[in-house]
Amino acid sequence: MVVRAHILVSGVVQGVFFRHNTMIKANEFNLKGWVRNLRDSRVEIICEGKKDEVQKLVDWCKKGPKGAYVSNVDVTWEDCTGEFDTFRVTY
């Protein structure tokens, strides 16, 4: 089953290569979508893929890369749109 997740990650998640490492993990899990920093210091992720692979990314986000301190991960499950060809860092 293919799903879409809208993920918001709070804590010390900017300036610690969170976006770059999210892209690496998303590619490892064969996910499509994007990741970006928000002005309120959170990181926002939209990803689509097999449910178990998307869940792996959600679980990874709870810890993040070395140097990150994740205080909260909010996930909203949405209908998959199939609009993405790759996973990328966006601004």
Rank of each mutant, 00 (worst) to 15 (best):
V3K: 10
V3F: 04
A5H: 10
I7H: 02
I7V: 03
L8K: 13
G11E: 07
G11Q: 06
V12M: 14
V12R: 11
V12D: 07
V13M: 04
V13R: 03
Q14S: 14
F17R: 07
R19T: 12
N21W: 00
N21A: 02
I24D: 02
F29P: 09
K32W: 03
G33V: 05
W34K: 03
R36Q: 05
N37L: 04
L38P: 07
R39E: 15
R39L: 15
D40R: 05
S41L: 14
V43G: 06
V43Q: 08
V43A: 05
V43N: 00
I45Q: 11
C47N: 01
E48A: 04
G49L: 05
G49K: 00
G49M: 00
K50C: 12
K51F: 11
K51N: 11
K51W: 09
E53N: 08
E53D: 03
Q55P: 06
Q55H: 13
K56H: 10
L57E: 03
V58C: 13
D59P: 14
W60D: 13
C61Q: 12
K62A: 14
K63M: 13
G64R: 09
G64F: 10
P65A: 12
P65L: 12
K66A: 06
G67W: 13
A68N: 15
Y69P: 02
Y69C: 08
V70E: 03
S71P: 00
S71D: 09
N72P: 15
V73D: 11
V73P: 06
D74S: 15
V75T: 02
V75M: 01
T76V: 08
W77Y: 02
E78P: 04
D79G: 11
C80Y: 15
C80H: 15
T81Q: 04
G82E: 07
G82Y: 02
T86W: 15
F87Q: 07
R88P: 09
